[in-house]
Every structure is written in C-alpha cells, then in structure tokens.
Design a protein around this nucleic acid. Structure first.
Length: 686
RNA sequence: GGGCCCGUAGCUCAGCGGUUAGAGCAGGGGACUCAUAAUCCCUUGGUCGCAGGUUCGAAUCCUGCCGGGCCUACCA
C-alpha cells in the first residue's frame, strides 16, 4: 500500500450557487481521505474546479446584468473562500471555463468522432423568441394537457397535480419563464453519442475490478446495462454559455460533457504550474484516479465518463466513491426552516472542526444518507472532542510545563502499544472510507487514556510536599504517558482535525507530519503553556445560525416566494398540536355554509344564534361565540366554513348543531374563515 | 409510475448466519476534584418495523407489506 500515486477529485460545484452544508459532506469526506493519504506518505493530489457552463449560468448572468465571465469569477472566489474556511485543501482549484479544459474537450471529441460514436439528429424544442434561446423543460410553464386535469402553471416535463408526463410542446398555452412570452416550436440538429457501442466495455468495467461500491454496481446492472443504452444528447444550439463545437458551428457542448473533463483540464493547469508530467497523471497505470461524488450524479460518472475516457485513451478511475445525501434533523434541508445553511453562514457562528468531526463520525463507505441532528451534533462534539480528547491534554499538560516530558517513556501497562496496534485498523478504515469506524476506535482509545489518568491520580502526588523528587517524577511519568496517548490520538485525528494537530504540534514543539509518528512515544521534549484547544459548542450559536439561515438571503429563491416578515407570537401562544394522520383529518367534515339568519340571543353574553344552509333543505342551527365581534346583519348572506359532523350540543339557549370555524385565540380577536369566490354551500373542504 | 437506500435501547449508530444483541450520548445511583459542570465506577433501558418463508439455528438470507429518505421519468 505504500508509494501509491493518487489523483483525487470531488465533484465540481456549479457556479450558479453558494456552497452549503450539504455540499460540504463531499468536500470534507474527500479532504479527510486526501489528508490521510498524504500523512501516510502517499503521493496524492487533490484536484477540483468550478463547473461554469450551461443555460442556468447564462440566464443568471443576464438577470444580474453582468457577463458570464464576471459571474463565474465572482462565484469561484466565494467557493474558494468557503472551502478554505473549512480547511479543505486542494492542490489545485481550476475552472471548466479554461483553455486547458477546452483542449481536452476537443481531444475527446475527436476521438469520439473517429470511433464513429457521434450521430446527428433533429430535436423539436420550444424557443423563446424574445430571450433568443431554446428553453429547457424547467424554463417553460403552461397548462397540463391532460383533459381531465388542465392544471395551470405546470413545468414543461410533467404535471405535479395529475402526474402526467409530456413534452413541453404539448403544454397548453406555454409561457417562457424567462421572458413571459409565448414560445414557438423550433427544430434544431443535436449531436448524440452512441454509447451503446461501448456496452460490453461498460458492463465489464462497472461489474468488476472494485471500481464501484457493490450496491452501485448492482444498481447499474439492473437498470441500465440490462437493456440497450440510450444515445446521449451532448450538444446545445446557440446561444449557450460553453464551448462551441469546432466541427459543428453554432452548437455547443452540453455542460455535462465538459464538466468531468474539467477534472483533466484542472490537472493540466496544476501540471503546468508545478512542472509535472501530465501523461504520468492521466495516461499512466502508475496513477490511481479516485472520484468522490454524490449519488445523484452516479449516472454521468459511471457510464458516460468511463466511455469518454476509454475512447479518448485516458486512464479510467480506480474507484468512484459515492456518498449519500445530507438531511438535517431528519428532513431534507429547508430554506424556510433555516436548515439550508450556507458554508459562509456556518462559519460566522461555529468552528469548522465541529462539522468535520461530526461528518467523519457518520460517514461510512456506503451510499447511505447521513443526518445532521443538531442535538446529536452538540452532544457528540462536546462529549467526544472536548470532554474526552482535548480533556486528556488539558489535565496532563499543565503538570509538565516546568519539567517537560520524561526522558524515558515510562511503563504504561501496554496502553501505548495498544494504540499503536489500533493505528493499523484506523488506517484501514480511513483508506476504505469508513470514517465512522475510525472515529469509534479513536474514541475508545481516548476513554482508555482518561481511565489511566483517573487511576494514577497525578494531582494527588503533585500536592505532596515540595522537594520530594520521587513524587515529582511520578507526576511527570503519569502525565508523560497521558500526553503521549493524547498525541497519538491527535495524529490519528489529524486528517479530520488539522487544527487540533497543529495546536498539538505547537504544544509539544514537535510538528505532526507523518502517520507513523504515532508509533513512537515522544520523550524528553518541553511542553508549552497549555491553552484551550477547542471550545464547547454553544447551543445558542447553533440556534443563531439556524435563525440567520432562515432569512431569505440567497440568490436562489424562486420568484414566487414572499419575504416572510410575520412574527411567531401566535404559534408561541398556542403551539402546533401533535401530528395526526390523514385518516384523523378525514374524520372532520368541513362544509361551506351560507348564513341565512343571525340573531342576538337574549341573556347570552357572547353567543349569536345562526341559521346555516348547506344547500337545498339542509339547514343547521349553530350557536357561535362571536357576539360583539360581528354584527348579526353583517353576517347574513355570507359564506362560512362549518364543522358539519360535530356531535350536537345542548346549550342553555338551545341545541347547537355544529360549529363555525374562525382564527384567533380564545377570548381575543376572532376572524371567521370564508371560502374564495365561487364556492357553493354544501361543498366539502378537503 | 419506476428505482436505490434505510428502519436495532429515548437519541445517533455498530453488529449483517452461530454462545444470554452491543457502543457512545441521554436517564438513575455513587466516587473524584487535575481538567472547558470535564473524568471514573455501577446501573435502568430492546417481542432488532410487521408478517410469512429458508435453516439444526435469522437482527443477520429470501418474499410480501408498512414507515422514512432520496433519485428519476415517453429514458430506469
């Protein structure tokens, strides 16, 4: 396993949005893996870049009134800053909008042509004459073509009301979301890659060689490779922000064609910068290529990408590491709930080490989703990192400020050796991507260290009369053991917590640079004055971060949303009730009703007597506690909502056969609900 | 509609065919006071989503169902 050459990539973030905590799962995961490999002595290069092309970028630049180049430059700057804030250390961070990427695109394209894999076909699409562009499905809205549905305001691919799938050209009254104008149907020639011709190769590559996690290989086999592969549409007609296809003027490569090529383009830039031989990295069996991606882009990285590399005569990935998605508190990230947290927002409130450790403690080599649960997050970080790990240094280093570490490593009951043996298992876990296993082993070592200190009670010996050399030496020995156990742990955690490794290096005046430093105890060296290495997580800061994230500060919000300025007084006064299922809800029969008559009830302080019509002969007498808020003559004729199947209740003034619904707290304001225009008495509310 | 993944103690997860199912955190009791109310010892707590099947033996394999997450859509 020694002396490997590794070229590692994370998926290229799209230049249309900011980095958020969901993205960070992948970059932190990759960074930990890379740092581990480097620490272990491998030659390892971490390459990434911004993904900059496509319609979305073009549109966004127009909206902001700047050029695409300005937009992507601005975004790249923001991305780089976010990554740096989380200690994600790329060897090179480039852009797909580069000459190097263009060169490689041309190279692979020529190879595809030469291999006879490119075909031209006509595609019918909607075209926005005002914006001067073809419209992707999501840029068209109209009425659902299903005669039984006809829901308005549906996207160009399917109806979210009836579920029908159709072509954007089938929409009734289609409207471009870009200009609001009515698009026209136009034809254009597109270029397709016939990857079915590489079916045999893809079958072999995906199913063997350990290039993919077993569940991924299985998934591809069952769903793509069991039948002919579809041609891949890789061109888009002008206008389009991207690279124009040299032998097909007016057509551009689709963003997903050049995005992965950005891995190679960015490596090329790195090679030029450091005088490396490009061919040794991308066209040589001596280099292992490792891609880290999310499961949503499996398809591109495990079928198209290997097909392109193979045809272009580049090295194929040794492994594509696929991770799941992030949920927050068990749910998909939500802008309104404040769980859609941008990297920059996180950094304003919390230490990046917390998130790095938390993700590490949850990541396995599988494709499972991981959940960020804030209570768990606070507990885990405080208890594992501050209570256990940092605590070891905190309770021993102070005793060694004067004496330094013992000159000979003392007898420790085999603890140091035990942790040396752990190092092997931890290294294997890191290498295989099973970080949560590594964290578990490390925390067990931390528990042993704390127990050791507890049992040997250095503080008692320290209290003994001054001048007792033997007692002083005992304190020194016990703390030398404790601090060495801590140092091992800091080395093992260095891929996850580079900051802690740096602080440990400073404390012991001995830089942590290599994994195998954990195999030999440090002796005789001085110990600097101890300072806190990590603060506990303050739950208030987490809360503040969520609150800050709930504000609609991002550029991505859809135009339909309104900035919410309402306060939460009502919800605080009366908290949301426990969850019910649909059946519970369905038991309540709410109906539209018209007020036929309304009268004061003699002797009653709050009640009005209402006669309601549910249409036809259906009439109800209802006593409602709204006297003083509504005048009887204002109610007659209006529509209200009533609970139609509520058990009748005998009241002092007569039988009430239902209830009308109103908003507002008890005894305070009261607002009757009424249906929108067009509702008829007797209609049920669903 | 199709698919992938998950469902084990209050919470987060490990175990993935073989002794009485484990850990951390939280809860309860005690000890200690060097340490960022940290640490140490003891302890409560589980029909391993449900129902069938395979097996000498199933949390672990198979089938179906239920619940959750996610992806995708004339492409699966």
């Amino acid at each position: 396993m020694n002396n490997r050459r590794l070229l590692v990539t994370s998926a290229l973030p799209y230049a249309n949005g900011h980095i958020h905590i969901g993205h960070l799962v992948e970059y932190i995961q990759t960074d930990i893996w890379v740092r581990f490999q480097k620490l272990a002595g491998q030659r390892c290069v971490y390459i990434c870049a911004d993904d900059t092309h496509g319609t979305a970028i073009m549109i966004r630049a127009r909206q902001e009134g700047i050029s695409e180049e300005e937009l992507i430059a601005k975004m790249q700057q923001a991305h780089v800053a976010d990554f740096a804030g989380f200690d994600i250390e790329f060897d090179h961070y480039g852009s797909t909008h580069s000459e190097e990427t263009r060169e490689v695109c041309i190279e692979i394209w020529s190879a595809l042509r030469k291999a006879g894999l490119v075909e031209e076909r006509e595609v019918v699409q909607l075209y926005d004459t005002q914006a001067g562009t073809f419209l992707a499905d999501r840029f068209v809205k109209g009425t659902c073509p299903n005669p039984a549905c006809h829901s308005p305001n549906q996207y160009g691919d399917s109806c979210d009301k009836c579920g029908l799938h159709y072509n954007p050209t089938d929409l009734i009254d289609p409207v471009s979301t870009l200009s609001g104008s009515k698009p026209e149907i136009r034809k254009a020639d597109h270029l397709f890659v016939n990857i079915e011709k590489l079916h045999g190769f893809l079958e072999e590559w995906t199913q063997g060689g350990g290039h993919l996690q077993p569940e991924v290989a299985n998934y591809l086999k069952g769903h793509f490779l069991c039948e002919p592969l579809h041609d891949w549409d890789v061109s888009r007609p002008a206008p389009y922000f991207g690279f124009e296809i040299p032998d097909s003027p007016g057509n551009y490569w689709y963003v997903w064609f050049d995005a992965p090529i950005g891995y190679i383009g960015s490596t090329k830039q790195w090679c030029q910068r450091y005088g490396e031989d490009f061919h040794r990295w991308w066209r040589s069996a001596e280099t292992e290529i490792h891609h880290f991606i999310g499961k949503d882009i499996t398809y591109f990285h495990t079928l198209f990408w290997p097909a392109m590399l193979k045809t272009g005569n580049f090295s194929l990935p040794k492994k594509v590491h696929i991770h799941g998605f992030l949920t927050v508190n068990g749910e998909k990230m939500s802008k309104s709930k404040g769980t859609f947290i941008r990297a920059a927002t996180y950094l304003e409130h919390l230490d990046p080490s917390y998130l790095r450790y938390y993700y590490a403690s949850k990541l396995s080599s599988g494709v499972d989703d991981i959940d960020l649960n804030f209570d768990d997050f606070i507990n885990k970080v405080n208890s594992d990192l501050v209570g256990k790990v940092v605590n070891i240094a905190s309770r021993t280093a102070r005793f060694l400020e004067r004496s330094g570490l013992s000159v000979m490593y003392p007898e420790d009951g085999g603890l140091f050796e035990e942790a040396v043996r752990d190092g092997k298992a931890i290294a294997e876990a890191y290498d295989s991507g099973d970080f949560s296993r590594a964290m578990r082993i490390i925390m067990a070592a931390a528990d042993r260290a704390n127990r050791y200190i507890e049992e040997h009670r250095p503080w008692e010996m320290a209290k003994q009369r001054e001048g007792e050399a033997s007692a002083a030496r005992q304190v020194q020995d016990v703390c030398t053991v404790g601090l060495n156990l801590f140092r091992q742990i800091a080395i093992y955690l260095a891929p996850v917590l580079p900051r802690l490794a740096r602080l440990t290096s400073e404390l012991l005046d001995d830089p942590i640079l290599r994994w195998d430093q954990a195999q030999r105890p440090l002796v005789g060296s001085r110990v600097r004055k101890f300072q806190h290495m990590m603060q506990r997580v303050d739950p208030k800061r987490v809360e503040a971060m969520v609150t800050a994230s709930a504000e609609p500060v991002d550029f991505d919000s859809t135009p339909e949303t309104t900035a919410a300025t309402d306060d939460d007084a009502a919800v605080r006064a009366e908290p949301i009730a426990g969850t019910i299922n649909f059946e519970d809800f369905a038991k309540v029969d709410l109906r539209v009703a018209r007020v036929l008559a309304a009268e004061d009830v003699a002797g009653a302080q709050k009640l009005l007597k209402l006669t309601l019509s549910l249409g036809g002969e259906n009439q109800r007498t209802v006593f409602a506690g709204i006297k003083g808020v509504y005048q009887p003559h204002d109610l007659v004729g209006r529509l209200v909502i009533c609970v139609a199947n509520l058990a009748p209740r005998k009241m002092k003034f007569g039988l009430s056969e239902g209830m009308i619904v109103a908003a507002g707290g008890p005894g305070s304001e009261c607002y009757l609900l009424s249906p929108d225009l067009g509702a008829k008495p007797g209609q049920r509310v669903h």
